[in-house]
């Protein structure tokens, strides 16, 4: 139950009950990092340089550009006075976001969703599996684990993208994370490429090849990658409750009212986006 208020939510969150939840705060973009040719990470503060909200790893935020629209994104990291969102240009709003520069004011509201089960992960060895932009939601958890390094066991990242140019968070993958104590990073790309002497192959087969056995695995990526990764993980002996992923649906309100993000009786914006494989098996296959 939410400890911050008596709202009856089954997870903690820090929304202000006097604030109209559908009206965003005035925020601004304070930094933009070009991850790949079609993905950028945006750092967002409020207009008075505060953190717009304090998201738990895996939670979501609604970002809007005044004259284009609003859409929900996973928060990939947070800092003292900002949050970060990695956004791939796939639609009208995301394409427009890719055109803006630092200083652009935006609407921002959140944090929404359940987030990753931190208590459950505590003290355990964790395997993070990501493909393409799918590393975005997982990154918030990885960064959390790094910030609270002593609370977690061994950290392992297996990440893949179509090509070298499509790898997101390169600085983390090749510079920052390998330096973290008791943390391994394995990176793969789909096809051979000049100037790449790392692993080549798809994520699901790399996971099986490495045959690592941490206690809990968090896997996020395109549906096709998840589809082919899950059987391998199950073969490796993971229980369904130890496989965690995130789901995506179209969303408008973010707070379980507007209706469209339901999978069965669960709303992805409120009851998700984080689900264990065990929970997913209780959901109808409609995502």
């Amino acid at each position: 139950m939410c400890e911050n208020c008596s709202c009856g939510n089954d997870h903690n969150h820090d929304h202000d009950h006097d604030q109209n939840v559908l009206i965003p705060q005035r925020g601004k973009i304070i930094n933009i990092v070009e991850e790949t040719s079609d993905t950028k990470t945006f750092s967002i503060s409020t207009i008075d340089d505060k953190k717009p909200f304090d998201p738990q790893p895996g939670q979501l935020g609604m970002l809007s550009l005044g004259n284009v629209g609003e859409a929900i994104f996973s928060v990939t990291n947070k800092g003292e006075n900002h949050i970060e969102m990695a956004i791939k240009a796939v639609g009208e709003l995301t394409n427009a976001l890719h055109e803006v520069e630092v200083g652009q004011e935006v609407g921002i509201r959140g944090a929404y969703g359940n987030g990753f089960p931190l208590d459950f992960c505590k003290g355990k060895d964790l395997l993070f599996i990501g493909g393409g932009i799918g590393l975005a939601p997982v990154r918030s958890l990885i960064m959390h684990c790094i910030r609270n390094r002593d609370d977690y066991g061994k950290l392992t990242v297996i990440y893949g993208a179509r090509s070298k140019a499509d790898l997101c968070f390169k600085e983390d993958l090749f510079e920052n994370w390998p330096k973290v104590p008791n943390m391994d990073v394995f990176v793969t790309i789909d096809r051979e490429e000049e100037g790449w002497d790392g692993h080549v192959g798809f994520v699901p087969s790399y996971v099986e090849e490495l045959a690592l056995k941490p206690q809990v695995t968090v896997v996020c990526g395109p549906p096709i990658m998840i589809k082919f990764t899950l059987p391998g993980l199950q073969k490796m002996g993971y229980a369904d409750t130890d496989i965690i992923t995130t789901l995506e649906m179209r969303m408008k309100c973010g707070v379980g009212k507007c209706g469209r993000c339901n999978i069965g009786s669960k709303y992805v914006c409120l009851d998700g986006p984080v689900f264990t494989l065990a929970e997913m098996k209780d959901l109808p296959q409609e995502y």
């Binding site: 939410c2 709202c7 009856g8 939510n9 707070v255 009212k257 409120l270």
Partner: peptide, 12 residues
């Protein structure tokens, strides 16, 4: 039920 429960109140 929809607009007033489950953690968020729809002010409108």
């Amino acid at each position: 039920q929809v607009f007033l429960t489950k953690g968020y109140i729809d002010e409108f």
